[in-house]
Design a protein around this nucleic acid. Structure first.
Lengths: 205, 205
DNA sequence: GCGGTACTGTACTTGCGGTACGGTTCTGGA
DNA sequence: TCCAGAACCGTACCGCAAGTACAGTACCGC
């Protein structure tokens, strides 16, 4: 039981590392079992197929990411009582976090899933969908609080604005990968921060 | 000669359609040759391997996209002499264009390449890189013109701002795919437009 | 020490990318 | 009109990765 959990974790660990570096389909099961020091039979004992691995990988990844967001924006709220300021601080912390990752952001598994649609079954896509909608709700709550204190300098939909956080992060990751400039993602987040600042700041500063 | 070009075009056409729907690796060569009504031998006569197909696909896609951007922003410049206004008009036209596509944006091959890194050789990645850097230069020119007329309400790097256009588009495509809401990409572009408006507008409107 | 959990080992099937190579059809130019 | 080369076709094959099947085995709590 405890042993099974450990093995499963080891599989997910080595798989996650490989997938973030090379992509999902470029990571073979043979390779995973070699790194995890088990056999192919052992792998299929824990996962029905590669789809099940993908699903577990996404679910775990999303959990970790949510925890990270929770901590980060909780800290940001600690640093300021003002909703706008705490959002701005949170985004700044996020940008710094991503910037300080050695080889840039490890990449987001969600995007991989979105772009390799037919590679995964509907179950995987549904997990992915829920995660993104969860982010929308998360940021929507924050922007609602901000909009409660400050008038908007340009009337925009707050759901769309919430989506923009995820959108800019995902887009930034793609850009940094495409041109090989790891700092791009952090830069893009800072631009989003600039937008939010201009959108809600009563006086242009 | 002319026959060869036609066959090659047909291969690229059917491949592009399949790739945009299912992803690159989920599209088999057997499937492509069946749709193009040729044989496997015929396929490999035109392309050394699947990498060569990917490269040709990306190159063609980028050309078409550049042409589209050229036309769109040329039209935007026709509609207003003011650099800021023409950028805002261009983005609005772009958002409308994407919104009016039947099943949302067909998806961007560049992102696929960026996320399936190891699937492609360095040649393909280089083509991809040049395309993204080309977009940076394109939008940088436009923002330089805007910054020449209007002071910025928040001092940001214009290269980063130029990247944000591509970034928001790519991120928007991912988001719309992930949650199955095709209109997201257009919404995100409109938010970018809102940012640029606030960033350069002398008076908050 | 017994039964289930957690695997190992071996052998096999299927599908895809890619190779090899001889044969065939079409086409433009001397 | 004929012929060289370009543009394919047909078939057979290889290697790799996903996945199946199934018998055997080590460990672990009761």
């Amino acid at each position: 039981m405890a042993r099974a959990r450990e093995t499963r974790k080891k599989i997910l660990d080595v798989a996650e590392e490989a997938v973030l570096v090379k992509g999902f389909d470029a990571t073979s099961i043979d390779e995973i079992v070699a790194s995890a020091e088990i056999t192919k039979s052992g792998f299929f004992y824990h996962f029905r197929d590669k789809n099940a691995l993908a699903r577990a990988l996404i679910e775990r990844h999303i959990e970790v990411e949510n925890q990270l967001f929770d901590d980060l924006f909780a800290r940001a709220r600690d640093l300021s009582d003002d909703p706008l300021q705490s959002v701005l601080i949170g985004l700044k912390l996020l940008a710094e976090l991503i910037e300080n990752m050695p080889d840039g952001h490890p990449g987001c598994i969600v995007a991989t899933a979105a772009y390799q649609d037919r590679l995964f079954d509907s179950d995987v896509r549904e997990v992915n969908r829920r995660a993104v909608l969860g982010w929308r709700r998360r940021f929507r709550t924050m922007f609602d609080a901000v909009a409660g204190c400050y008038p908007m300098n340009d009337p925009v939909d707050l759901d769309h604005l919430s989506d923009m956080v995820s959108s800019v992060i995902e887009g930034g990751i793609i850009m940094s990968r495409a041109v090989g400039e790891p700092q791009i993602t952090a830069q893009q987040i800072m631009l989003l921060r600039s937008y939010i600042k201009l959108l809600f700041s009563p006086a242009v500063q």
